[in-house]
C-alpha cells in the first residue's frame, strides 16, 4: 500500500504538473513559435521572425526527442508532441521513416468502377504491406497531377510553381523534382505529384512560403500529412493529429500552417519535402511483422491513391496483383 501511495503521488505529479507547464511555456514565452516536448520540457525550435530560409541540418532538440521504434528492416516509427504559442494548439506528430533501398514502394490507384469515386483506404492495404499511406492530393475523385502506377502513366502531369513530383525506380532510388519540371519517366515504376512544396534544393523553404500574397495561405491551420527525404536517402512520412480528447478532435482544422510544416520537415532533417492530402483524408498504417495488429491512424474518407511499402524480396514468378488494371 505504501508503494501504491508513492505511485499515486508520482502519477498525481505527472498528471498535474505536465499539462500546466505545457500550457504555460510555449504560449507565454514565444508566440507563434513551435516547440517540441523533450525531456520533460517544451523546447522552442522555430520562430516565424527568425525562420531560416534553408534547413541545412536537422534540429538537435527534435532529434533528441525522437525515440525511433524499429518495425521491420528499413522501417521505424516515432511520435512526438508539438506545441505552438499563439494561437495555442498542440499536435502529436506521427512519424514513419523508411528506407526505399530496403523496401519496395508502389502506388495503388483505386477508384470505384461504377462512378469512378475514390475507393482506397488503409483497410485495403495488402497483408504484406509494412506501410500504407494516402498519396498526393485530390479534389473530388481523381488524384491531382502525374500518376504512374506499375510503370504505366495513369494521369498526365499537373503544372504549378509549388508542385513536387516524387518518382521511384525499381532499385529504390527516389527522384524529386519541384516546380514545372518532371523527372524522366525512364525506369520509373511509380510516381505522383503533390503540393505545396515544403522544401526543395537541399532544405530550401520556397520563397512563396516565406512571403505573404504568393498564392499560398501562410496562416491557415489544419491537420497535416507530409512526405520528405532526408540527406541519407530515407523517406519520412509525418502526420499531425490534434492533441486533445476524443477522435473527432484529431481532424479539426487546427494544426500547423504550411510554413510551420516546412519548418517541421526541415527540423526533422528533410532536404526535399511536400505536403500530402491531410485533414480527413490523412491515413497511415504501419505493420510490425512480429505483431498481429497493425498500427493504424484512419482517415475519414476514401482516397484515390495509396502508397504501399513492402519488404524487398527476390522476384518470384507470381503475377503482380496490380498489373492487370
Amino acid at each position: 500500500m505504501r508503494r501504491a501511495g508513492h505511485l499515486a503521488l508520482a502519477l498525481a505529479a505527472l498528471l498535474l504538473s505536465e499539462p500546466l507547464r505545457a500550457h504555460a511555456e510555449p504560449a507565454a514565452r514565444a508566440p507563434a513559435a513551435l516547440a517540441v516536448w523533450e525531456a520533460g520540457a517544451w523546447r522552442t525550435f522555430w520562430r516565424p521572425d527568425r525562420a531560416p530560409e534553408r534547413w541545412a541540418a536537422a534540429d538537435s532538440a527534435i532529434l533528441r526527442s525522437l525515440d525511433w521504434k524499429r518495425l521491420a528492416s528499413g522501417l521505424a516509427w516515432a511520435s512526438l508532441r508539438l506545441a505552438c504559442g499563439a494561437p495555442v494548439w498542440r499536435a502529436r506528430l506521427i512519424l514513419a521513416r523508411l528506407d526505399p533501398r530496403e523496401l519496395r514502394l508502389s502506388l495503388v490507384f483505386d477508384l470505384s468502377r461504377a462512378d469512378l469515386r475514390p475507393a482506397w483506404s488503409i483497410e485495403k492495404a495488402p497483408g504484406d504491406a509494412l506501410l500504407a499511406v494516402n498519396a498526393g492530393q485530390f479534389g473530388t475523385s481523381m488524384p491531382w497531377g502525374w500518376v504512374v502506377v506499375d510503370g504505366r502513366r495513369q494521369l498526365s502531369p499537373g503544372l504549378g510553381p509549388l508542385a513536387s513530383a516524387i518518382a521511384f525506380d525499381d532499385s529504390g532510388r527516389v527522384l524529386w523534382t519541384h516546380g514545372d519540371t518532371l523527372a524522366s519517366s525512364a525506369g520509373i515504376v511509380a510516381a505522383f505529384q503533390s503540393y505545396p512544396t515544403l522544401l526543395a534544393g537541399d532544405g530550401v523553404v520556397p520563397p512563396a512560403l516565406r512571403t505573404a500574397g504568393s498564392g499560398v495561405s501562410l496562416t491557415h491551420r489544419d491537420a497535416r500529412l507530409a512526405l520528405g527525404e532526408t540527406r541519407d536517402g530515407r523517406l519520412l512520412i509525418v502526420m499531425t493529429r490534434f492533441d486533445a480528447i476524443g477522435e473527432v478532435a484529431e481532424f479539426i482544422p487546427l494544426g500547423p500552417t504550411t510554413p510551420e510544416m516546412a519548418a517541421i520537415m526541415g527540423a526533422l532533417g528533410a532536404r526535399d519535402a511536400v505536403m500530402l492530402d491531410g485533414g480527413i483524408s490523412a491515413q497511415l498504417l504501419l505493420r510490425d511483422p512480429a505483431r498481429k495488429a497493425p498500427l493504424e491512424w484512419r482517415g475519414m474518407r476514401k482516397v484515390p491513391l495509396g502508397l504501399i511499402a513492402r519488404p524487398r524480396v527476390p522476384a518470384t514468378a507470381s503475377r503482380p496483383a496490380e498489373a492487370g488494371r
Binding site: A10, L11, S217, T219, F242, A244, I245, G246, P253, L254
Partner: peptide
C-alpha cells in the same frame, strides 16, 4: 507505472489541450 499510466492516459483521454472551436481564417 508512470510510463504505463502516461501511455494509458495518452491513448484514451489525455487532457493535453482543451478542445477548442475551430479558428476561422481565409480558408475555413
Amino acid at each position: 507505472a508512470t510510463d504505463k499510466a502516461a501511455k494509458s492516459v495518452e491513448k484514451k483521454a489525455t487532457p493535453t489541450a482543451p478542445c477548442k472551436a475551430v479558428e476561422y481564417d481565409e480558408v475555413v
